[in-house]
């Protein structure tokens, strides 16, 4: 589904991603872990098309398309979704209205008819239930006055509405209490299918008790330095990242 080869990215002349490789196939869940500042959010931002980053080397193939060549909105229309680490508030822009406009632009891009008002409402009801998001919140201004947990749930609600091929969840678990974590994780699991894939960026092993990854990668200093299965996450939880550092310098 996505193949990232030797990706180098800098911001303000500072190299953050330093030759990153990753391949994700349909139906898979990948976890990316790593210490603060390793470049996890940078990877997510670069994939979503944030323009501040300069790609100096490397390629990203997304289902046969050169992802780095696409505008942000076209990446979304091709089926890429980023759940932001820090979802911003957009006063005055209604969550529902913008999602409907977005959904219809995605449909238009794919040569499909716009969704009817009725079908859209049915979709909203169905998808907000998945993350137990109060439908009243769903129709308020984007994230305005939402609690931290509500913002994260809103991200997954939007993901459910847009039904992406590849979802990247950037620390969706941070700031969630255990109940909210379970709800969000359940939502993500319900959306899983053999045709889509998920990249879960997280700091904590506990999310991976709920969203079981097929692979766990360690991102360190701009590169994936270690890949394993879900046991690696437990190892990291227990031993921190220092042993990886040591292993690397060997």
């Amino acid at each position: 589904m996505i193949t990232i080869k030797n990706l180098h990215a800098s911001i303000d002349g500072k190299e953050i991603l330093k030759g990153l490789n990753l391949e994700v196939k349909p139906g898979e869940v990948h976890a990316i872990m790593g210490p603060n500042g390793a470049g996890k959010s940078t990877l997510a931002s670069v994939l979503a098309g944030r323009e501040e980053y300069e790609i100096t080397e490397g390629t990203v193939d997304f289902d046969g398309k050169d992802l780095l060549d696409l505008k942000t909105e076209d990446r979304a229309r091709e089926g890429l979704f980023l759940a932001f680490q820090y979802p911003i508030e957009i006063p005055g822009v209604s969550n529902i209205n913008f999602l409907r406009a977005a959904l219809n632009e995605i449909r238009e891009y794919r040569g499909e008819e716009p969704i009817s008002a009725k079908d859209f409402l049915i979709l909203v009801r169905e998808k907000s239930a998945i993350v137990e998001l109060d439908p009243k919140l769903a129709s308020r201004s984007v994230n305005e006055g939402f609690s931290g947990g509500e913002k994260k749930r809103n991200e997954i609600f939007q993901m459910a509405m847009l039904n992406p091929k590849l979802a990247i969840l950037d620390e969706t678990d941070s700031g969630l209490d255990i109940d909210a974590l379970r709800i969000v994780a359940n939502g993500v699991n319900k959306l899983k299918s053999k045709d889509n894939a998920t990249i879960v960026i997280t700091h904590y092993q506990r999310l991976l008790d709920y969203i079981i990854p097929d692979f766990v990668h360690v991102l360190y200093d701009g590169k994936i330095v270690k890949t394993g299965t879900k046991e690696l996450a437990l190892d990291l939880e227990e031993r921190g990242y220092d042993w990886i550092k040591e292993e690397m310098s060997l």
């Binding site: 979503a48 098309g49 944030r50 505008k71 942000t72 909105e73 990446r75 979304a76 229309r77 979704f81 980023l82 932001f84 979802p87 911003i88 957009i90 006063p91 005055g92 822009v93 209205n97 913008f98 999602l99 406009a101 977005a102 959904l103 632009e105 995605i106 891009y109 201004s141 984007v142 939007q158 847009l162």
Partner: peptide
């Protein structure tokens, strides 16, 4: 950027923001 990352064109995103 947030709105575009959801599939809205840049023009639509700006229009929506100005409207708000």
């Amino acid at each position: 950027f947030y709105l575009r990352a959801r599939g809205l064109s840049e023009k639509s995103a700006r229009k929506l923001m100005i409207g708000a």
